[in-house]
Design a protein around this nucleic acid. Structure first.
Length: 260
DNA sequence: CGCTATTTTCCTGTTT
DNA sequence: GAAACAGGAAAATAGC
């Protein structure tokens, strides 16, 4: 058979994610330097847009912060553009993660860990979720149907977490789907009303799930086994013939637009 | 401490 | 061939 449209997403993180990284053991105090990842083998100026996103994901991983807390759409650019962003640009685009990201990219631009002087450069990003992303006034963004909401308005003064994600796997998946602004192309609805969805970055989702469970060795292989157990419980329905595609079943609640 | 529900891990085989 | 899909089996984990 002719190979179906194997999207460009296919060259996802397969290589890097598979690696059993060292950040598993401790939330270490990393000063921006990680290990050897592809990031360190190529100049950020030449990154593709996809690589920019991978970099984002990896920096977030380093600090054990849910990557979906920063709006990836604000980094819809290639490496060249990324490198031309200023410190302020990073702050505008990534809120409290701005300084950290800026520091990371600066190091990478210079070819390795080094000192960067930008005021109070706190390497440990303090998780300030109260107002993750200040308004971004992008004048030339009319045709973008993404309206970026600052997310759950944090009604109470209490520091409400970026997003309460269900404790169970299916809830975790559901919640990623339900917050597209914070879903950097990980999973996508195939049929919103029918509850059919597809993994775009299966390994990335597995990593995210693993981080939630504090298990750095999670893989899609294992995650999918858990997904298959849901068939019997009718939390998921089989969608055969279609790889990486699942469908919510009668016992999965809270995913419908109406009951949202 | 048991007990249950949910994964997680591993594996062998099949399908795409 | 490389990924996914399929489940069985058993261990691990989290909450009562």
């Amino acid at each position: 058979m002719s190979t179906p449209l194997t999207t460009m997403l296919e060259n996802q993180l397969t290589t890097t994610w598979g690696i059993t990284n060292s950040y598993s053991d401790a939330p270490m105090l990393m000063s921006g330097y990680t290990g050897r990842l592809w990031l360190y083998d190529s100049h950020p100026q030449f990154w593709s847009k996809h690589q920019v996103w991978e970099w984002l994901q990896q920096v977030m991983d380093m600090y054990q912060i849910d990557a979906s807390t920063i709006p990836f759409q604000h980094f819809d650019m290639d490496g060249h553009q990324l490198c031309s962003l200023t410190y302020q640009d990073f702050n505008r685009a990534a809120g409290s993660m701005g300084p950290t990201l800026f520091h990371s990219i600066t190091e990478l631009k210079l070819g390795g860990p080094c000192h960067v002087e930008i005021g109070q450069q706190d390497l440990k990003p303090e998780l300030d979720f109260s107002c993750p992303y200040p308004n971004i006034s992008s004048a030339s963004e009319e045709n973008c149907d993404y309206v970026i909401h600052p997310l759950p308005p944090a009604a109470s003064p209490a520091p409400s977490r970026p997003g309460p994600r269900g404790t169970h796997l299916w809830e975790f998946i559901r919640d990623i789907l339900l917050t597209p602004e914070r879903n950097p192309g990980l999973i996508k609805w195939e049929d919103r009303t029918a509850g059919v969805f597809r993994f775009l970055k299966s390994e990335a989702v597995a990593q995210l799930w693993g981080r939630k469970k504090n298990n750095s060795s999670m893989t899609y292989e294992k995650l999918s086994r858990a997904m298959r157990y849901y068939y019997k419980r009718e939390i998921l329905e089989r969608v055969d013939g279609r790889r990486l595609v699942y469908k919510f079943g009668r016992n999965a609640k809270g995913w419908k637009e109406s009951e949202k």
